[in-house]
């Protein structure tokens, strides 16, 4: 039986007095690609921020590879790969420095060859020695993804990470993630609006509405959507959203 590497238990989260997450629970086992869907402003990014430690849940807990994000944050973050927003990247550092600092912050002894190989495939090596504030959105997005993949994380969390990526680069990243999943090395949690990714890559998906998970789709249901085609998933999503 595959182990649960991401366990979200009844998480509530607020911004001030406004409750954004109202008891969200989900489990992601190793080797699974889990997509989080939902309209804008329903709490997808808030849930991911709770996982990354940027926001403390008002109640509930999150476990990353068995470590609580609230009581054992450092141990949890050792096993987490989180792609930050492109605007959070330090503009006055070069791409190389960002990778080195992030690796040091994660307590790594080296920068993995597979990350450097992916950087080469994404044609990012030409940007290693340029300052981040000269990068385009897509280039910054590539760097965010490379940072998230450092150190063989057990849980990779991506928030609309394919926005701004050219189709070829997006495909390379998807195949890289699939390769990691196939080897059982990790699990992926992706918040996205792209149903194409859900249909072709996801093992499971969940719909978040007004801070709660209202519908989950299993691997077989997603496979059925793939076979049906004709915007079947889109129709099901719209029906579940009402």
């Amino acid at each position: 039986m595959t182990s649960i590497v991401l366990d979200v238990r009844q998480v509530h989260a607020k911004y001030g007095k406004r409750e954004v997450l109202s008891g969200v629970s989900l489990q992601v086992p190793a080797g699974e690609w889990f997509c989080l869907l939902g309209p804008n402003g329903v709490g997808k990014s808030t849930l991911l921020r709770c996982i990354s430690g940027a926001l403390t849940p008002s109640s509930g807990d999150l476990f990353i590879a068995g470590h609580s994000a609230t009581t054992e944050p450092l141990a949890a973050k050792q096993r987490l790969g989180y792609a930050c927003a492109p605007e959070q990247l330090p503009g006055l550092l070069t791409g190389r420095q960002c990778l080195e600092v992030y690796a040091q912050a994660k307590g790594l002894t080296e920068i993995g060859a597979d990350v450097l190989a992916l950087a080469h495939e994404l044609r990012f090596d030409g940007y290693f020695d340029s300052f981040v504030d000269t990068y385009s959105l897509g280039t910054r997005q590539k760097l965010c993804i490379l940072l998230a993949l450092l150190g063989e994380p057990t849980v990779i969390v991506l928030d609309e990470a394919f926005n701004g990526l050219d189709p070829a680069s997006a495909l390379l990243v998807k195949h890289h993630l699939q390769h990691r999943l196939t080897n059982g090395r990790c699990a992926v949690l992706l918040a996205t609006h792209s149903l194409d990714i859900v249909e072709h890559y996801a093992d499971k998906a969940a719909l978040l509405i007004d801070g709660r998970i209202v519908r989950e789709w299993s691997e077989s249901e997603i496979a059925a959507f793939r076979v049906q085609g004709n915007s079947a998933m889109e129709t099901a999503l719209a029906a579940a959203s009402t």
């Binding site: 330090p90 006055l92 550092l93 070069t94 190389r96 420095q97 960002c98 990778l99 080195e100 600092v101 690796a103 040091q104 912050a105 994660k106 790594l108 002894t109 080296e110 920068i111 450097l116």
Partner: peptide, 16 residues
């Protein structure tokens, strides 16, 4: 080759 190193963090305020 790159290696983990926090030196750039120390230089960030000076760069700013």
């Amino acid at each position: 080759s790159m290696r983990p190193d926090a030196a750039a963090l120390a230089g960030w305020p000076i760069a700013q």
